[in-house]
């Protein structure tokens, strides 16, 4: 148990370091898959098999695949890697890293100060989780459903391919000026009259 935990932790940390230092997006994403799998191993060692499986299916599966699709669509190849190289200079990352290390030191200090030592290990199976999820957390589950729905609709709307990005008020103005210009011509009157603006 302990060996498994420390090993997978080491792998997770190392893989994550690789994620944030890669120049090519696709490499970073592959290391991220490794990191997620290592975290899934930690979950297993903590006696939580259900979330370990979900971690792999959803994080390492669905989300990473989504990101890889985007990287492919945007064609972020070696050109991007070259740009990343230019961006990732010591003067850019040194300051934030030191600040983050200060934060890490504080967190670890606080954790160790309030430590209670070893605790007994309790196995929690998926049945318990399911009972809790559809018992006391049922409202939260419904709300999560709304959230996912909103995410889908939002992504579909934002991701729509639009030629020109104009606010609808501005669009209306543009259209109305067009109609005015047209209405000055007498022969077009019959056609323009019934035309109403549709957003």
């Amino acid at each position: 148990m302990n060996v498994l935990f420390y090993l997978s932790s080491a792998i997770a940390i190392a893989a994550t370091i690789m994620v944030i230092t890669r120049y090519k997006p696709i490499h970073a994403l592959l290391y991220l898959v490794v990191s997620f799998m290592a975290v899934a191993m930690i979950f297993l060692s903590l006696g939580a098999p259900f979330v370990a499986v979900l971690e792999i299916i959803l994080y390492a599966g669905a989300i990473i695949v989504l990101m890889i699709f985007v990287v492919m669509m945007l064609n972020l190849g070696s050109e991007t890697a070259q740009q990343e190289k230019e961006w990732l200079l010591p003067k850019v990352w040194l300051g934030p890293s030191i600040l983050s290390l200060v934060l890490l030191g504080e967190i670890i200090y606080l954790l160790l100060r309030s430590g209670t030592g070893n605790a007994s290990f309790i196995f929690i199976d998926s049945k318990k989780v399911a009972l809790s999820l559809y018992g006391e957390y049922i409202i939260a589950v419904e709300l999560t459903g709304f959230l996912l729905m909103a995410g889908i609709v939002g992504a579909a709307h934002i991701g729509k391919h639009k030629k020109k990005h104009l606010h609808r008020f501005l669009q209306e103005e543009e259209v109305s000026t067009k109609i005015e210009v047209r209405s000055t011509k007498p022969e077009d009157e019959k056609q323009t009259k019934p035309v109403a603006y549709k957003p």
């Binding site: 934030p96 600040l99 200060v102 934060l103 504080e106 606080l110």
Partner: peptide, 20 residues
């Protein structure tokens, strides 16, 4: 965006520093 995140980070460090 990064500037803002640094602001948040400094705030968290400060709050945790208060704890310590």
């Amino acid at each position: 965006l990064r500037w803002y995140v640094v602001g948040v980070l400094i705030g968290i460090i400060f709050v945790l520093g208060l704890q310590i």
